[in-house]
Structures are given as C-alpha cells and as structure tokens.
Computed example of a mutant assay.
Amino acid sequence: MMGFKRRKIMIDNMIHDQASGLRRLAQPSLTKVISVTGGKGGVGKSNVALGLAICIARQDRKVMVLDADLGLANIDVMLGIRPKRNLGHVLTGKCALKDAIVEGPYGIRIIPATSGTRSMTELSYAQHAGLIRAFSSLEEDMDVMLIDTAAGISDMVISFSRAAQDVIVVVCDEPTSITDAYALIKLLSKDHHVQRFKVVANMVRSYREGRELFAKLTFVAERFLNVTLELVACIPLDDKVRQSVKKQKIVVDAFPRSPAALAISSLANKILTWPAPKTPSGHLEFFLERLLNNQAGMGESFGE
C-alpha cells in the first residue's frame, strides 16, 4: 500500500519529467506534426499519409509516420513490412519506443501499432502517461511527423488530432464521408478549440467534383461552426492506387507518374511551405493537460 505523500511525489515527478520532454517535442522548429484523419473508414487516409511521407522523404527530409490506429494497424501491411515490435510492446514495457521503430521506403521511419488488440483502443490515463514518456525520450531528429489516425471520432482520434499542428481531413464524395468528416470537425472545434482544417478531396473524378465536394462540407461547417476550411488537394480516382495496394506499395512509389501520385506529390510540396507555429499550441502537450486534469484518476492507478 502506498502512502498519499509518496504517491503524490511520484505523480509530481512524473509530470515534471513529462513536461520537460513535451516541451522538447513541441518545438515547432524541430518537428512539424500533421494529423491525417477523416472520420470515416475507407476514404484513403493511410494511402495519403504514406504517399506524403514518401514524397517528403524524397526531398531529403527526415520523416516519421505514426500508425495511430492502435487496434487495427495497417501501415506495416500496406508496405509489406513485418515489424517484430510495436506500440503494444512499448506500453507493456517490453521494449523502448526507439526499438519499435522500423524503416520504410526512402528511409521513412515508421512507428507500427498493433492489430486485433481491443485494449489498445481503450488506454487508461496511466497508459497515456506511459505513451508520453516513450515519445519524450525519443531522440530521433525528424522534420515531419505524420499521424495516420483511426477511423471514427473515438477519444484516441481526437487526442492525436489535437496533438497536431495541422489537421488534414480526407473526405470522398459519399454522404457518410461528408457527415462523418463534419462530425469530427464539429467535435474538434467545439470541444477542443481546433479552428483550422485542411481538406483533401480524395478519389474524385475531376477537379470540379473535388471543388463541389469541398463546397458541400464548407457549407455546413462554416455555417454552424467557427472554423476555417482550406481545400489543399483534389486527388483523382485512379486505378493505379488499387494496383499499388495489391503490390503492397504506395502509388507514389509504384506509379509515380499516375494522376493520384502527382496530386499527392503536389500536396507534399505544399506541406513543406506551410509555416510552423511560433508558439507550441497543440502538439503533444495536450497529454500533459489531460494528465493534470485527471491526477486523482491516475493516483488510483498507483493504488492506496
């Protein structure tokens, strides 16, 4: 049984250590953190995230991809990689985060998640703290970190989106995709004060269709929410994407001159021009905020 004073000292020390690590990680001059999300599954988030990673890495930038679909990982599968360790091993203390990182095409660094593990989608506050410690100790020198979130509007999707400096919302021309994207934007803006979103119209038949899709989303979002949406790319419907998936490659690598690959490459060039925030708003310090707001709950995890 742990005394109250001892437990409080442990929590205070942990918060201090995490705060220091998060301040290092949140320096915008070091790493630009971009969340690629969408609300609905099947809109092509992972293809977009990995395509951007490869295109940015080709320009001599150091890129890391975090597979944040903690229960249904697919980044490693899409690349034909079989990692021996993943975030599940990190959280259970079986390895350090640096030992779970694997190398993908063009030197991109990949943090793989687990697949088919329900517990990874329902992390406790103590496990969130463990995840922070892992990232705080990471010494990888990265220019860009891309977070490929899970589908839906779960707590983890919201958390990782809040962690980013820029949120890319991938949407396709389906009513459910538009509805789910709006729900995600609404939740992030109303409950978590995220006001700016960059939109990718994916799998569209023409640039005009992409603009019309963006107009549909903008109509409801800007009418009822205090947000600003920016259309940053229209990625065409391209059979080469499907062919690439079968080859366990990304379209920008397998078919670099295909319409979809060229659109993703153009977006990657835009990303490199996006200015980094001058203050560390957003980023991973939201974990610390969460930790501070739930010290009592975390204290219980240590036991009385």
Results as ranks from 00 to 15, higher is better:
T279C: 02
S266Y: 14
V241E: 09
L213C: 06
A276V: 13
I271C: 03
A221C: 15
K216E: 04
I235E: 03
L291Y: 12
K240D: 05
V194A: 02
L237T: 04
A181H: 04
N226H: 11
H283F: 13
S266E: 15
K270H: 05
V204M: 06
T273I: 04
L187R: 09
F197A: 06
C234F: 14
R257V: 01
P256M: 10
L292K: 15
E209L: 00
L213G: 04
R290S: 06
K198F: 14
N226E: 12
Y207H: 13
D239C: 06
Q248V: 01
Q195D: 08
F197L: 10
Q195R: 15
L288G: 07
E209F: 06
G282M: 11
V194Y: 08
R257K: 12
G297A: 10
T179Y: 13
K198T: 05
L229W: 04
Q243D: 03
D180Y: 10
L292H: 14
I185V: 15
S189H: 10
L225C: 08
E289W: 12
A263I: 05
R211W: 14
S258R: 08
V204W: 05
L284V: 05
S265C: 10
E230R: 15
L288W: 09
N202S: 09
A215R: 13
K246I: 11
D191A: 11
Q195I: 03
V241S: 02
E212M: 11
L237K: 09
N294Q: 08
V241R: 01
K249F: 01
I250Y: 02
A201Y: 08
E230D: 13
A261C: 04
Q195W: 08
A296E: 15
D180P: 13
L272T: 07
V194H: 09
I235H: 07
G210A: 03
L188A: 03
V200T: 05
T228E: 09
T218S: 14
S258W: 14
D180G: 08
Y182P: 00
N294A: 12
D238P: 01
L267A: 04
R208L: 12
A181T: 08
A254H: 09
F219K: 15
F287M: 10
L213I: 05
V227P: 09
F224V: 02
G282S: 12
F214C: 00
P275M: 00
N226K: 10
Q248G: 00
A260V: 01
Q248K: 06
T279N: 09
G210R: 00
T273M: 12
N202E: 13
K278N: 05
Y182H: 03
P277G: 08
L225I: 11
V200F: 10
R290L: 07
G282R: 12
M203P: 08
S258G: 07
Q243F: 06
S244F: 04
V252I: 02
P259I: 02
G282F: 06
D253R: 07
N293Q: 12
R242A: 14
I250S: 05
F197Q: 07
I264P: 10
L288H: 10
Q243G: 11
K246G: 15
I185M: 10
A221P: 09
R205K: 11
Y207L: 00
A276D: 01
F286T: 07
P259Y: 15
F286H: 14
P280Q: 13
L237M: 10
N202K: 06
L284M: 15
A296D: 11
M203G: 01
L188R: 02
S206G: 03
H192Q: 07
